[in-house]
Design a binder for these strands. Structure first.
Lengths: 132, 132
DNA sequence: TGACTCTTACTACGATTGTAGTAAACTATG
DNA sequence: CATAGTTTACTACAATCGTAGTAAGAGTCA
């Protein structure tokens, strides 16, 4: 399951607190984001369509709840990144992270040790369907 | 500089070998990708527009060369991922990677040690303009 | 030089994404 | 109940993305 930029924003709010109303989500968005109420509704509807979010009614009002877990969304995003930018293997990503000049030499050392046996591919399914 | 899926494909070919013709790139794409020659040209033109690639002529034929470095593209992609999915901090990403069940216990141990002092934010510019 | 083949330049077109607007239905309140 | 604010349902629309097609010019070879 790929999420777009705006979908990540909403999902982050939903993972933080759910179920939530559109209005509630609006309140929990980072302050620099000022979306129209209907924008949020549109994006939520798309997430429902994709199966990432469940919608149900309480009286007249829609409540939303994540179906996709944060864990699975992260896995999936990482897998995409690794495929696009790191030859499809986690090793190169790790190496790239390890070469971050902000790491202290000790940190780098320890990480490099750990990487010596880092398996190249992460096994398992991207998203096992059971993402509750 | 954000790259789309297809743009990553082309850039990966270009980083591998450049300068390159559109035809040459076609030959270096992974075998499961079968794009029309004109598709590749269109995508390259968009990359040139974005300033990720330089195009110059040899006789009648266009040669392409990356301007954006792989390093910078990776940095940028990682920053996007971290912002979307890991609260904008590298620490949580590292933790997520460390909790990969495919790591051996020793690897996990070493990584966790290293992470104890992992700074949350990576400093420096996303893309310093000097991406030659 | 005529017939092919390759390359270029330009255009196209549906799907997705970001960002709403409007009208109608619902709800709460004086 | 009349009015005002809230929520819904539906529609819109430009930009970007994936994926080409076509026509015309250039190079190549018999």
């Amino acid at each position: 399951m790929r999420l777009t930029d705006t979908e990540w924003q909403l999902m982050n709010c939903l993972w933080e607190k759910h179920p939530a109303t559109a209005r509630g989500i609006a309140g929990r968005l980072p302050p620099e984001i000022k979306w129209a109420y209907t924008t949020i509704r549109t994006l939520l509807a798309r997430l429902v369509d994709k199966g990432a979010v469940r919608e149900y009614k309480e009286g007249n009002t829609s409540l939303y709840e994540p179906i996709l877990t944060r864990e699975n969304a992260r896995k999936s995003a990482l897998k995409t990144l690794v495929n696009q930018a790191f030859d499809g293997a986690y090793g190169p990503l790790m190496h790239f992270l390890v070469n971050d000049p902000n790491l202290t030499p000790q940190q780098r050392q320890a990480l490099e040790e750990a990487l010596k046996e880092q398996p190249e591919k992460r096994g398992g399914k991207e998203n096992g369907g059971d993402n509750q």
